[in-house]
Amino acid sequence: MHADTTPGRKAAALAAFAGLDQEPGVPKPDPILVVDKVVRRFGGLTAVDVDHVEVQRGSITALIGPNGAGKTTFFNQLTGFDSADEGSWTFNGKQLKGVPAHRVARAGMVRTFQLTKALSKLTVMENMRLGAQNQRGENFFRALVPGSWRRQEDEITERAEELLERFKLDAKRDDFAGSLSGGQRKLLEMARALMVGPELVMLDEPMAGVNPALTQSLLGHVKDLREEGMTVLFVEHDMDMVRDISDWVIVMAQGAVIAEGPPDTIMSDPRVIDAYLGAHHDAPMSSEEFEEQLQEAEAELESEIEEKA
């Protein structure tokens, strides 16, 4: 069930964004994640300084920006993998500042990593089972009584098998995750994140290191997440992908959110162009500027001649 066959959710997501200002921090009709004045400093360097940003529920939002814009640091802060020096953010109205990463995940905000973290020496199935929450057998004492967790384990396995089938990894069920290809690992990581039962899926560069043949399938899976009512926030460099799947784009540069907008128009926003390419990068030299430079050079020459005389 790819997004193209059921346009309902996409249309709903796009309708929510219709008529919104393209200003950084614009309020959304139904935000799932609201970030306020989040700052992260590494010594003298301010890596993240986000004043206000909201992520609309049920949409696919892209977070883009040039290298070093602080996207991944921002991501790490939101998911509890890095701390914030200042600021606060709420997920479903719940304050998340200072909440450790595992509690953020339990609250329903699950992330993947830029460098895929497949658990190599666990089988694909064990990777999947690990994602399930509230497992009775994960308690030390109950673990010693297999009868107390067998049934739940069977249910988890069934859910995992469904997901593996959907991600076309069912043939790899009993292989070590370390033996998968880079793209398959990305798929496994995404499927494993879904085992948690998230409301907001945070993907850190889902397309990095994936061979082009798998890209389309991965894109389809990301769209499927929205179809199932989840919200997706992802960091990506591949602009084709951003244009293809995202409903809204947030642009970061030098730690701050500099612009927001729909994917079709955001790349022509002058602030975005400046951020990627630098201000005045391609403006042709006007005749006045040319004259000015010529006169400067002449004046320099004259002063040199005078000195020598």
Partner: peptide, 28 residues
């Protein structure tokens, strides 16, 4: 008994990559 259980699975996963286990809601 322990290493066949979900408890042991979390342990082995921590050996492989702590951050991944954290991102799946386990108190590493």
């Amino acid at each position: 008994l322990l290493m066949k259980s979900p408890w042991g699975r979390v342990l082995k996963a921590i050996r492989e990559d702590e951050d991944a286990v954290r991102s799946l809601g386990k108190n590493v």
